[in-house]
Simulated scan of single mutants.
Amino acid sequence: MATTLGLDPTLLEIIVCPKCHGKLEPREIAGAEPGTGELACLGECGLVYPVRDGIPVLLVDEARN
């Protein structure tokens, strides 16, 4: 079963990368608190956005390659 990082599965179906509009895949970070992880863009830009306390931070300036 895939991780959702505490995010609503319906939300994960509709949000996309703000830069290239690619699909976002939730990923847990080993040893991190529940609700903390990242959303990785599967599109052309490949940016990774943080999820803090169950809230996705979908700002290109906060993303990493």
Rank of each mutant, 00 (worst) to 15 (best):
P50W: 05
D61F: 00
R52F: 00
D8G: 11
E38L: 09
C20Y: 07
E44D: 15
G43I: 02
A40W: 08
C20A: 08
K19I: 06
C20K: 11
P34H: 04
I15E: 03
L39N: 09
H21N: 14
I15D: 02
V51C: 06
L47K: 10
E13A: 14
L39F: 07
G6L: 07
C41A: 06
A32L: 01
A40Y: 02
V51L: 03
H21M: 09
E62M: 13
P56G: 07
L39C: 06
E62R: 15
G43S: 05
I55M: 08
A40R: 15
T3S: 15
D8Y: 11
V60W: 00
E33R: 14
D53V: 00
G54W: 03
P34Y: 01
D61C: 00
D53G: 13
L24C: 04
L11E: 10
N65M: 08
R27M: 14
P26D: 01
C45F: 05
L12S: 01
G22A: 02
A30V: 10
L11N: 05
L11D: 03
V60N: 01
G43H: 08
E25I: 12
T36Q: 13
G43N: 06
L5H: 05
P34R: 11
C20M: 05
I55S: 07
K19D: 15
R52P: 05
A63W: 05
T10D: 15
L59H: 10
E38N: 07
E33A: 15
G31R: 11
I14D: 02
I14E: 08
G54T: 09
K23R: 15
C17L: 04
D8H: 13
P56D: 01
E38M: 13
A63R: 08
C17F: 06
G43L: 02
P50T: 07
G54V: 09
A30W: 02
G54I: 08
P56R: 07
P56A: 04
R64M: 03
K23V: 02
T10R: 15
P56T: 08
K19S: 15
I29A: 05
P9Y: 01
M1Y: 12
E33K: 14
P9V: 03
L42C: 05
L24S: 06
L24D: 03
V16N: 14
G54C: 04
D61P: 00
A40V: 14
V16W: 01
L42P: 05
E28P: 09
A63N: 06
I15K: 01
V60S: 01
L47F: 06
L39P: 11
E25T: 12
P26V: 00
G22F: 06
G6C: 09
K23Q: 12
D53R: 15
L42S: 11
A2Y: 03
E44G: 10
A2F: 06
L12F: 04
R52H: 11
G37F: 12
G6Y: 10
L42Q: 15
Y49L: 09
